[in-house]
C-alpha cells in the first residue's frame, strides 16, 4: 500500500475498529445459526442412517419407529405433508391471487391502504390458534357436510392452512401485479381490451413469475407448518390420499416424539433429526427456487 492509504488506516481509532469487529461478530451469528442447524441435523441423521439404510428410509412404505415392529419409511409422513400442503394450496392459491388482483387492479388507493394491513393481520395469527380453530370449529362444521370425516383429518387442517398461506400469496402477488409497467395495461386498453380482459390476458401473465414465486414460498411455509397439523391432522402416519382420515406430517411427528420422553442417543430420538433433515432439504429447495424465480422478475424490472 502506498503512503496515503496507510495513513488513513493508521488514523482509524481503536474504538472504530473494535466497533466494526463487534458488529461483524453479530452479523456472523446468523451464519453460525445456519451452520448449527446443518451440523445438528447431519450429525444425528448420520447415526440414524448407520442403523437404518437409506434404501429403507426411502423405500419402505411404513413408518412405525415407536412400535415393536419398526419400519422407517419416510413416505407416510411425506404423503401426509404433501396432502395437507396440496389442500392448503387448493384453498390459498385462488383466494390469494384473486385477492391480489382485487387489491392491485380494482381497489382505490385508499381502500388498499386499509385492506393491505387487514390482510396482514391474518399472517400475524399464531399457528397454534389456527390449529385450535381447525380442530374445534372447522372440523365439526365439515363433519356436517363430509360423510365419514374423522375428528382428526387432513381436510380441516389443510383448509385452515390455506387461510394461513393466503396473506403470503396475496401480498407477494400484489407486489408482482403492481410492478407490471402501466404502459402494458395502457396498450391493452388502447387496443380495445376491457379492464377484465386486460387483467386476465396481459397483467396476470406479465406478473406470472412473481405469482409463481409467491406460491412456491407459500408451499414451503405449508410444508414446514407444524402446529396446525399437530393439533388437527392426527398422529397416524399412513400412506393415503384420503383427506378424511387422521394422518401425520413430518412436522407433527417431530412434535409427537418431542412430547414423549425419548432419551437422547436412542434410534427413536435420532428419527426426528432424520425427518428434520428431510424437511430442511425440502424447504431449502423450495425457497431457493422461489428466490430464483423472483430474482428473474426483479432483475427484469430493474432493466
Amino acid at each position: 500500500m502506498s503512503g496515503g492509504h496507510a495513513d488513513l488506516f493508521a488514523k482509524r481509532p481503536l474504538s472504530e475498529r473494535v466497533a466494526s469487529g463487534l458488529l461483524l461478530a453479530t452479523a456472523l451469528v446468523s451464519v453460525l445459526t445456519t451452520v448449527g442447524i446443518v451440523v445438528v441435523l447431519l450429525k444425528q441423521s448420520l447415526s440414524f442412517f448407520r442403523a437404518v439404510p437409506l434404501a429403507a428410509f426411502l423405500g419402505d412404505t411404513q413408518w412405525t419407529p415407536l412400535f415393536a415392529d419398526k419400519h422407517f419409511g419416510i413416505w407416510p409422513l411425506l404423503s401426509g405433508t404433501l396432502l395437507t400442503t396440496a389442500i392448503a394450496v387448493a384453498v390459498g392459491l385462488p383466494l390469494g391471487v384473486l385477492a391480489a388482483i382485487c387489491l392491485a387492479e380494482f381497489a382505490s388507493p385508499r381502500a388498499r391502504r386499509v385492506l393491505k394491513p387487514v390482510v396482514e393481520v391474518l399472517a400475524g395469527v399464531p399457528t397454534v390458534v389456527y390449529g385450535t380453530f381447525a380442530l374445534t370449529v372447522v372440523t365439526p362444521l365439515l363433519q356436517r357436510v363430509v360423510p365419514g370425516l374423522s375428528g382428526f383429518n387432513a381436510l380441516g387442517a389443510g383448509i385452515v392452512m390455506g387461510i394461513m398461506i393466503f396473506p403470503i400469496i396475496a401480498s407477494i402477488s400484489e407486489d408482482a401485479l403492481s410492478s407490471v409497467p402501466p404502459t402494458l395495461r395502457e396498450a391493452a386498453l388502447a387496443l380495445g381490451g376491457s379492464r377484465v380482459t386486460t387483467i386476465v390476458k396481459v397483467v396476470v401473465p406479465s406478473a406470472f413469475s412473481g405469482i409463481t414465486a409467491a406460491v412456491i414460498l407459500a408451499v414451503s411455509r405449508a410444508v414446514g407448518e407444524t402446529m396446525i397439523v399437530a393439533v388437527a391432522a392426527g398422529q397416524q402416519p399412513r400412506l393415503t390420499l384420503d383427506p378424511r382420515v387422521p394422518i401425520e406430517t413430518m412436522t407433527a411427528y417431530i412434535v409427537q416424539v418431542s412430547l414423549g420422553d425419548t432419551p437422547s442417543g436412542t434410534l427413536e430420538y435420532q428419527t426426528i433429526f432424520a425427518v428434520g433433515l428431510s424437511l430442511f432439504l425440502l424447504t431449502l429447495a423450495l425457497n431457493v427456487i422461489s428466490q430464483r424465480v423472483r430474482g428473474v422478475v426483479t432483475g427484469a424490472a430493474r432493466r
Binding site: I37, S220, E225, S258, G276, T283, N287, Q291
Partner: peptide
C-alpha cells in the same frame, strides 16, 4: 439471512 428466514420454526427447535 434470507435462507434462514425460510427455515421452518420447528428446525430451530431441534437446534
Amino acid at each position: 439471512i434470507s435462507n434462514l428466514a425460510g427455515v421452518p420454526s420447528i428446525l430451530y427447535g431441534l437446534l
